[in-house]
């Protein structure tokens, strides 16, 4: 770990390599050409999934498949397993890592929305030591995060919600890339407190506070979902235009809320 951080600090253009499913294709297409690659997936301290004092701890180098099939994840926050199993395809899930995915911060990736809805924290080790950042503060824009060049994500820490909490991830998939056109992660605690986050809709994953507050204060799924994706900039591409995406966000918010109600 220390060696990895040292290499990242030594001045050459270096990139951290996780599962490689975003970075390696970019290298192949010559869209990016770092001088140094630091493969962190064999660092033992970045591996492992455990429950510690009411917190689910996922090492950054765990693969999507490992998370999707983890008993600890299934027993505590099953929607993370569901979300993980909807990423890419089998081979991508076998190799791609949670840390790599959130560091890349693709607006259509599933993990950012899942972690936002889970109220996760992200542990980062860098030149100045270790810090823990709320997922809410981690994602800062289109493919951008607070990560510095020499930072390595080490862990994702997720508070295990109270008994009786329901959660889900509903994904409308882009059939070619298998990324989310719209992914809606929702968590509803027995108190009614609701967290709803979207992937694929805007420049980066976001918590939809209007939907959350409506749902938390007892609005029906339909009513709360009607407030989804208002007031945010919405992506548009050849597969889904802005207003269609917005429509889908509402449909998927409702479907997610119905599931957790």
């Amino acid at each position: 770990m220390e060696e990895a951080i040292e290499i990242l600090q030594n001045g050459s253009y270096a990139k951290v390599l996780g599962g490689g499913h975003s970075l390696v294709p970019a290298l192949k297409l010559r869209l990016n050409a770092p001088e140094t690659l630091v493969d962190v997936t064999r660092i033992e301290s970045l591996k492992g999934i455990a429950i510690e004092d009411g917190t689910l701890v996922i090492g950054a180098a765990n693969t999507h498949h490992e998370i999707a099939t983890s008993a600890d994840v299934h027993n505590t926050l099953s929607f993370l397993a569901k979300g993980a199993s909807a990423i890419g395809d089998v081979q991508v899930r076998n190799k791609g890592t949670i840390g790599g995915s959130i560091a890349h911060a693709d607006p259509s990736a599933d993990w950012p929305a899942l972690l936002l809805a889970a109220d996760a924290s992200i542990v980062i080790q860098g030149a100045d030591g270790t810090k823990t950042v709320a997922a809410q503060d981690f994602f800062t824009g289109f493919f951008s995060t607070i990560l510095e060049e020499s930072d390595i994500i080490t862990q994702i820490r997720i508070p295990i919600p109270p008994e009786g909490t329901k959660s889900t991830y509903q994904k409308f998939v882009q059939p070619a890339s298998r990324f989310a056109i719209v992914g809606c992660a929702a968590v509803k605690e027995p108190s009614g407190a609701t967290r709803v986050a979207f992937a694929g809709v805007s420049d980066y994953a976001f918590r939809d506070e209007a939907v959350e507050s409506a749902s938390s204060s007892g609005a029906s799924a339909e009513e709360a979902a009607s407030k989804a994706a208002e007031g945010v900039s919405i992506m548009s591409d050849h597969y889904a235009s802005e207003d269609y995406r917005k429509h889908l966000a509402k449909v998927y918010a409702r479907r997610a809320l119905v599931e957790v109600s």
Partner: peptide, 15 residues
């Protein structure tokens, strides 16, 4: 604008 398998949608087994 959809000149790759990430963008050009071909049928997969589950389609």
């Amino acid at each position: 604008i959809n000149g790759s398998y990430m963008d050009y949608c071909m049928p997969r087994a589950d389609d």
